[in-house]
Design a protein around this nucleic acid. Structure first.
Lengths: 253, 253
DNA sequence: GCATTACAGCGTACGACATACGCAGAAGGG
DNA sequence: CCCTTCTGCGTATGTCGTACGCTGTAATGC
């Protein structure tokens, strides 16, 4: 008797397989009133409305008019539900790059698309990541990113590394800006006053003799002006893409 | 009567103030058997031994031979304890850059130092970040990073952005490698077999016609060889620093 | 038509967790 | 000596994930 997975594979959860369209409904038994996509949608609705901390099994069940334990017929655990929520929350990838775009324009578009998703659903950033992507939409995003680099002379491994670099940057930047937003809401401060208040706090704590460089930054008023977050994002992205561009040129030569 | 914070500041938690050495012991009352540093050390010991999920208030109290609720006399909440754990977990910053180092060597050293800390204490990556750094060691790291850029013609705000970019990259890269390690331990697979197994899983799931670029990456065997994680880290860091270098040159001109 | 069978939904229960609250005892000040 | 103030802690509450088993339902085999 073979194991349940025919050849190999480290045991994909059943709900993930159903997300890939494998796994048909068994012929017997009562018609299910709950479905995996329905549960995931309800969970996403809760997260959109009240944040990830509001997503508990009982809250999601309430959203569906079902009992808590009913969900466990369809998802193996809360972690599995979270994985599916991430997949649904990202949504479909922005699509392949327009043909007239060079790699840099394509990757820029791709990065901005991810940023936009993370801005609108900041709870995605709070889901603890447990492994590399294996859900359909996630791999769709990856695919479209790779296609942006198709015209370059980069090795396949380098393309992957570059995308990892970019998506990591986008996530990181989105995390920081979302922290400012959430922190200001928690403290009851205007978002535009958040960084100045932070600057004042740090200025009060540090000794200029021990933290001269930091003191200079504060004295320059870096944190006082609230610059457009888009500019901050563009700055970092352009730095990274400048570095990638140097590599692309070298490989082309 | 004024509020407890003299001038401004969004209410620094008392335990953080004590980490800065403000706040002397009140003259009355019994001598405390527990101290904030002692509690934090115990919590760090637990996290080092059994991971961040093992860090509960009762577990930390047990480590100290105290009752759970005794901890709340010294830290305001678990989140506050986590913040102090991060500060202690990072430890002292690597120090200012050696005088003979140029900015790039200095920043590289700084990035590798953070990476080393995150490699040895991967639980640091699992602590949900709730705001910008306000603890002594964290700001010490920031200070030393800024000093690496002292010789450049970058604006103060640009220095800050560059460091944010780098530290974000380091955290991201460390997160990915730690996921591989933790995932392999959870699945009972050799760490070197983790990525190949992932590649086989993805290959089984995707349709080559719908995911051509991804299929090409897999066919190239990118995930099959287990490359040195140090090389992967160096690759991304060099890309970013190439991009920063272009900016530094432009500002110097 | 009827028994069988596999599955959907759910009620109960358990163990872990953070933490509010209030009491008992210690240490120094008047 | 007593009063204030602080430490440590026991109790209790509410939330959470989820293991287990029961009940009813729908399709299949006779």
């Amino acid at each position: 008797m073979a194991a349940k997975n025919d050849d190999s594979g480290p045991a994909i959860p059943p709900a993930i397989e159903s997300a890939w369209g494998l796994r048909e409904r068994p012929p017997k038994g009562p018609r299910p009133g709950l479905t995996v996509p329905g549960i995931v949608d309800a969970a996403v609705r809760v997260a959109d409305a009240d944040g990830l901390t509001a997503v508990s099994m009982s809250r999601v069940a309430k959203e569906l008019g079902a009992a808590t334990m009913a969900l466990y017929r369809h998802v193996g655990s809360k972690d599995e539900l979270l994985m599916l929520m991430v997949d649904a929350g990202y949504g479909p990838s922005p699509g392949p790059p327009p043909p007239q775009d060079d790699w840099r324009a394509g990757v820029t578009r791709w990065a901005w698309a991810e940023r936009e998703v993370l801005r609108r659903r900041s709870w995605l950033l709070h889901v603890p990541i447990t492994g590399p992507p294996i859900t359909p939409q996630q791999l769709g995003w990856l695919e479209d990113g790779l296609r942006c680099l198709d015209g370059t002379a980069l090795a396949e491994g380098e393309k992957m590394s570059v995308l990892l670099l970019i998506t990591g940057y986008v996530r990181n930047e989105a995390t920081l800006t979302s922290q400012i937003a959430e922190g200001s809401r928690a403290a009851g401060v205007e978002p535009s006053e958040m960084m100045p208040a932070y600057g004042r706090t740090v200025a009060r704590l540090i000794d200029p003799a021990r933290f001269p460089a930091l003191h200079r930054v504060l004295a320059a008023g870096v944190l006082n002006q609230d610059d457009d977050p888009d500019d901050e994002f563009t700055f970092g992205l352009d730095r990274i893409l400048d570095g990638v561009e140097a590599l692309v040129r070298r490989r082309a030569a």
